[in-house]
Nucleic acid binder design. Structure first.
Lengths: 304, 304
DNA sequence: CGGGGTTAGACAAAGTCTAGACAAAGCCTA
DNA sequence: TAGGCTTTGTCTAGACTTTGTCTAACCCCG
């Protein structure tokens, strides 16, 4: 974990030192540590928040509202800004996610899907995403609930239209969070997407969002990216890492093909429920939940 | 959850701050929170209402009536969707949308796609969506720009990854607007989606968003909805209208199949670039641009 | 001593507020 | 068709708020 002086933070965020101090004084948007002689010492979480605030302000949001917005997610960014100490292959050292308190009943999303009722669906999602941090909700509620949707569909209890109906709404929620997490110019670049023929993008979008919230510069390509497009993209962007999603066993072959084609170009990683079934030709597996995977990748990149 | 100042709302709705204040003063169409110093703080619901009012006014409704419509607590009387085919009258008397002033250059979206640069892409979209009302931007900039993306792709100037990259970002913008438009319990129910095998959902999502902004209770099913799911959905929801998108000529056959399967259940409409190529088995064609189509449908359902 | 950091206060530009006025456009009546 | 009333977007004037920047005086480190 690095520490930065005002001048460094000014360079990183593009905000003048005087303005940084004014933001701190007026909105308490950060409270950096101090040296014995009162010099400010910002950490990564502070920089992430100030970058986000700078971005909002540049986009036309008044500083006071931007500060409020940034401060709202405070506890989570604090956790994300302190990734594990060393290059440990798994995300040890990161605090475990607290369990969710008032999340909706496990089958409420299925009920909403069956009813095609947007009011019930919205209420369910509102309730879920209000129950904790984005990371807590994704791992603790969203992914299990989506699994239930899949089960209900295979058992014939849920029509495709109902599945589409909730998938679309969940996609919109995730999209909003992804956008809200903002870009991070200068941060490690990570390309994220799905192999050709793979369309289930909810988990990988959630993953991309968590990565963004941890300060990565995520380039999200979405579903069904042809193998040669992966190669061209990596050649063009030279990212610090590439993550290929493997949501189902049906995607194993195409993911293997993509991984093989990318071998040697950069750090290639495979994530998702079926990732472990891929023959890892020079690629690594991101094991565990969505948030675990993101933390593992984050730790790896910060260690290198 | 987000809050906005007058200036931001003006940018989001395409209505000048002075007019926004006049609407509030004269019609109490919104009553935004105030800061301690009396500054207005609009929330998402306020923005949705004002956007809708702006759209109505742009369509020729006098401001006073538009305000009444937007303010009305009592839900609209559900119009009886008479099944059967008919030539739908095109959007009556609605004046053409005002041209956009400061929209980005025509090829800027293509440039952003080629570069895979999220900053440039965000800036482009920010600039575009700040140039006028949602409807103005959709018809006047977004659809033409997406056409250019398609052209660049067919001409080999743009990789699939670049196309995915912008499509995803545009989808996220539209998703945000769709959510911000809010639900309309009690209003005429319209089911919107794409036929089986059809995946290009940007135009139909934009269409669904405009419909919502006009006060419909839209149930958006998304892409690739199987024919029997369409039938089950319509049987279950008994909507006032169903709109099947036909984005390309490749989708004509499946759209025809869906329209045939739905014949007689409710008012079935076909919209999109290739809609006119469908053999209209009891369905009507929504001609013209995205906004034109939405206005036509809206006029039909309101019976005026 | 010089370069940088710190606080506190001050300042100007930009943003917003209210209340009222005004002109173009629409509508009604004769 | 003309006159008069209403509607509605815009503008003005003066006061207040927000916000980035600047200054003065002091502190810290090599």
């Amino acid at each position: 974990m690095s520490r930065y002086t005002v001048k460094q933070v000014a360079a990183l965020t593009g905000v003048s030192p005087a303005t940084l101090r004014a933001w701190e004084r007026r909105y308490t948007v950060v409270e950096p540590e101090r040296t014995a002689s009162k010099y400010r010492l910002y950490d990564d979480a502070d920089v992430a928040r100030l970058s986000r605030m700078a971005e909002l302000v540049a986009g036309g949001t008044p500083a006071s509202l931007a500060a409020e917005e940034v401060t709202r997610d405070a506890p989570l960014l604090a956790a994300a800004g302190a990734p594990g100490s060393a290059a440990v292959p798994s995300a040890q050292g990161a605090p475990p996610l607290a369990p969710l308190a008032d999340r909706p009943a496990d089958d409420q999303l299925v009920t909403a899907a069956q009813s095609l009722d947007p009011v019930l669906l919205d209420r369910t999602l509102d309730q879920a995403f209000a129950a904790g941090s984005f990371e807590q909700v994704v791992d603790g509620w969203l992914m299990p609930a989506l699994t239930q949707i899949g089960v209900a569909w295979t058992e014939g209890r849920l029509d495709v239209a109902g599945e589409h109906f909730v998938s679309g709404a969940v996609h919109r929620r995730l999209a909003h969070s992804f956008e809200a997490a903002g870009g991070r110019a200068g941060a490690p670049v990570v390309v994220v997407g799905l192999p050709p023929g793979s369309f289930h993008q909810l988990a990988v979008l959630a993953f991309a969002t968590v990565l963004r919230r941890q300060g990565m510069d995520v380039r999200y390509l979405g579903p069904d990216v042809p193998t040669d497009s992966w190669v061209r993209t990596v050649t063009q962007l030279r990212p610090d890492a590439v993550v290929v999603g493997v949501p189902t066993t049906l995607d194993v072959d195409s993911a293997t093909e993509v991984a093989a084609a990318l071998r040697g170009t950069t750090s290639v990683m495979l994530g998702g429920a079926a990732a472990s079934a891929v023959d890892t030709v020079g690629a690594s597996i991101l094991a565990g939940s969505v948030v675990d995977s993101a933390r593992t990748l984050s730790a790896t990149l910060h260690g290198s």
